[in-house]
Design a protein around this nucleic acid. Structure first.
Lengths: 129, 129
DNA sequence: GACAGGTAAGACAACCTGTCTTACTTTGGT
DNA sequence: ACCAAAGTAAGACAGGTTGTCTTACCTGTC
């Protein structure tokens, strides 16, 4: 779990989304997905964003082929965790509990969501660390 | 609940923290809290940040006295909600459920936290919309 | 009137972000 | 072997953001 001193920006995030969905992908493919009918200008943009993502530690590059393949170096779930933690630091003195409480209270949970949430807690209860 | 097209930045947030804790406050007091022993330069900085917070809708100003009083226009709780929603849009296609699940799973909840969480869900269950 | 303290408005450098350019290298077809 | 297509590498760039700082003006009180 790298430090990730720098956050992924908006455009970088849209690249991560594709990598999460499609797995290892070439610059060409990414460009076609994100900028349909895109020219070589967009190709360069995607490439630059991938470079930055790599230097920030969000993406890994496979250089074994002449045309490199890129894949996410962090799972969506883990990025969510990072951002929640960051948000807790900035807004709640580092504690995640207020975020949790807010979500449970504010969100209109469906019956099945409540059910799976309850069983999730039961799981934790049943497996005492 | 204003739109808040622009997010509150780091320095702005530290001002909001004081406003949340202390209620309506003058520029002078805020400066003393945030920049102890601060000169008139820091005073101006705080003032500028308050201006921006006001124009973004995060702060309300009481101009009735010659020295204005500022107070938060949004509760800490509501800002948390806004940011969670924003994060859900960027990372989870708008759904808050993944954030909730992540928090429940990842956080080491104490027994009493689990208990209060369970009863919170029971509350919602018992009061069917 | 001078002055202490406030308001108003904007300049400024440093940085971030997305885009785009330019130059070099590799690959594959003929 | 040559050449065009496609890749890589590196960096310039404009526009915006952010925190800081400056400068000018207003308003009370002694």
């Amino acid at each position: 779990m790298p430090p990730h001193s720098q956050d992924a920006t908006g455009a970088e995030l849209s690249i991560l989304q594709v990598l999460w969905d499609d797995g290892p992908t070439s610059v060409r493919t990414l460009t076609d997905v994100l900028y349909p009918g895109g020219s070589k200008v967009h190709y360069a943009t995607v490439k630059k964003l991938l470079e930055r993502l790599e230097s920030k530690g969000y993406v890994q590059r496979d250089r074994s082929e002449s045309s490199h393949l890129f894949q996410a170096a962090i799972a969506r779930e883990d990025l969510i965790g990072e951002r929640l933690r960051l948000m807790a630091e900035k807004l709640c003195d580092g504690s995640l509990a207020p975020l949790l409480m807010h979500l449970v209270k504010s969100q209109r949970l469906t019956k099945s969501e409540r059910q799976s949430l309850r069983s999730l807690i039961d799981d934790i209860d049943g497996r005492p660390k």
